[in-house]
Design a protein around this nucleic acid. Structure first.
Lengths: 200, 200
DNA sequence: AGGAACGTAGCACGGCCGTGCTATAAAACG
DNA sequence: CGTTTTATAGCACGGCCGTGCTACGTTCCT
């Protein structure tokens, strides 16, 4: 058979197939057979790229986490702390179809990570990255006088709010529009500024 | 064989067995066989109480949701709005082993509900109940001058914070102690009061 | 006392699963 | 051109799964 694409691309395609199956049928149906079929390959061929199912799943989860981390890194440009914070945070919310899809599979993997050590390590990595991002945002706001001085406490609150909104968006996409999600973040940032100017 | 317990109790026991299996091995291992073994029954006997696996799973999920709803209902006693709010909210957090266990299986079921219509209906019921509870709390605080006047927006924020904290507690039980979770809620309630007295 | 309903157990069928193995053809390389 | 590597396909084994069915003892009701 001809080499039609390079191996790395094939692995990406297979990861994408995994995500499609998970979204459509759930993580429990993301079997080697189903994923191979989704990608238009035979089982044997898939196993040429991933020697085990867990390797395939881990790779698929990694791609999701990497995409989330990449969004966090995109904080160039904007220099005003408030707008900068809002820009980054909104970027992380599931506002369009792509991010909604990622968010759904993130939730599925996160749940399974409770009993799968490999996935757990990846999930923790993503958790830490997001928390660090939240901390950086809060610290910057705090330094600019736009958030309370207790950075750890406000990091906890912002991080929980962000993931809570993501979970809610996955559970009830009808009730959580792009606008309402973004508005919730915006309101929280406003609130932080008010708290600082008043309480601390 | 003798009737040793009444059927309703047996169903409760089986639901409890489901939850234990889910916590230990994950939802994907909560098969009829494994649950029957966990409960010390034969498959055939289990099927006397639940004619299908989905019925068993739905029942188990219901028991979790009912427990959460029951906590929301326990709002008698305390009359001071602030303390009342804190009491109820803290009750909902996974602060002890029992609530942590519930929280973990809630997460597992919630993820599966994305592709299982029966579970989705139950999950939505729980979501609505929790949101209504949050709304009632925010409304009461707002009326007492202890929270901003925009009740829907603050309900969204409080609800997301609550579920976000629960998810984080499930993901990283080591990083989220009972104290830190309760402190996050307490801080948020303080913040609401500050916002009201300042911003609105 | 005797039949009906209940609770428990166990088996067997068909299905999906992950993975090890072999075969084959294209490509890469010497 | 021949050989080795790579990519693809397919099969078969053993395992777990849900569920339908039968059997058997116990309890209950009349």
């Amino acid at each position: 058979m001809p080499r039609v694409v390079d191996p790395a691309q094939r692995r990406q395609d297979l990861a994408a197939a995994v995500l499609r199956v998970i979204r459509r049928d759930g993580l429990e149906h993301a079997s080697v057979r189903n994923v191979a079929q989704e990608a238009g390959l035979s089982m044997g061929s898939l196993r040429h790229y991933f020697t085990s199912q867990s390797e395939l799943m881990a790779f698929a989860f990694e791609t999701v986490i990497e995409r989330i981390q990449a969004r966090l890194g995109d904080l160039t440009g904007e220099r005003d702390p408030r707008r900068r914070a809002e820009t980054i945070l909104v970027e992380l919310l599931p506002l369009d179809a792509d991010r909604r899809a990622e968010n759904e599979v993130w939730l599925a993997f996160t749940a399974r990570a409770a009993v799968d050590p490999t996935l757990r390590a990846l999930r923790d990595e993503g958790y830490d990255a997001l928390r660090d991002g939240c901390r950086a945002i809060v610290a910057e706001l705090s330094e600019a006088g736009l958030a309370p001085t207790d950075v750890p406490a406000e990091t906890e609150r912002l991080h929980a709010l962000l993931d809570g909104l993501a979970v809610h968006a996955a559970m009830r996409p009808d009730l959580h529009t792009a606008e309402s999600l973004a508005a919730a973040i915006s309101r929280h940032l406003d609130a932080l500024a008010v708290e600082r100017s008043r309480g601390d």
